[in-house]
Design a protein around this nucleic acid. Structure first.
Lengths: 146, 146
DNA sequence: TAAAATTAAATTGTGTACAATTTAATTTTA
DNA sequence: TAAAATTAAATTGTACACAATTTAATTTTA
């Protein structure tokens, strides 16, 4: 009997994968965001950094990385691009020269008001009920927390 | 009253985002796969292509793109790398010279047996029940199908 | 049927991701 | 306290993603 026809084989069918829909959905969500973020001239990962800073004002590269689960290899060039756009300031800490503090410029702070309608718009374009949304969030977080 | 303190503002908090857990989970899932895929010397997107070919034998670049929701800008270089590894063959169709057919080499076919334990191992490392897994898959697909 | 439109891949350019290494600063410890 | 270990960012190199454009082949249509 060929491997193709065994029960074990079914697990290798794309349509039976749990992970593929998550991977595809993640990319599609970023597409949903694109028109709104294009208007602000930032990318989705850049938007995530801005959200953290709108909430916390100043964060180190490490803190941003811990919250967003991204390393300095990703963040350093991304933050340089945000700095080039005039949205943030990168400044080495006086107290510890290894640390780089990231803070908002007035322009970066001002963007918060332009972004505040995005979450609501996103909920609409995703077309899920609030319960489904909560379920999705909870399941994703349950795996993430392991 | 500062924008920070309004109800609308809550929507911009990272912890209230539905999309961020999906984005973070997608990347974490790929990390779960990494040790198993490292053993096969392929990446997660390459593994997805291989899964399609294990099921369908021959596919055009377009067909792969439709199934995986990736365009030729992503697939062409990825497929060239799989060809370089000796896992697939890229061959222009005689019937329509625009089309490139992708098929498995014996080595690519042989990899199927080495990969057949991966889905089970993944279920274990994700630590969700089968019901939760189904829920997650269904919610993700519901949004994807829009 | 020849020009226009469409289609399939490939190419170009920008921006993540992330492993692995490097650099520089700080902390620990022998 | 000087050497070793640790830590924080940055750097290097590889591999996606994807928008926009290009190239070449095929279809449509005027």
């Amino acid at each position: 009997m060929r491997l193709r026809e065994t029960i074990m084989q079914e697990a290798l069918l794309l349509e039976n994968q749990v992970c593929f829909p998550i991977y595809a959905l993640s990319r599609q969500i970023i597409q949903y965001y694109r028109p709104m973020l294009d208007a602000l001239d930032i990318t989705y990962p850049q938007y995530l950094v801005m959200m953290v800073l709108w909430e916390h004002d100043t964060q180190t590269v490490n803190q941003l990385g811990a919250l967003l689960k991204l390393d300095s290899g990703t963040l350093t060039p991304l933050l340089k691009r945000l700095e080039l756009k005039g949205l943030i300031i990168r400044k080495r800490s006086k107290a510890d020269e290894r640390v780089v503090n990231i803070s908002l410029t007035p322009s970066g702070r001002a963007m918060e008001e332009m972004a505040c309608s995005i979450p609501h718009q996103m909920l609409e374009s995703m077309g899920l009920s609030l319960e489904e949304m909560q379920q999705l969030k909870q399941l994703a977080e349950k795996i993430l927390d392991k």
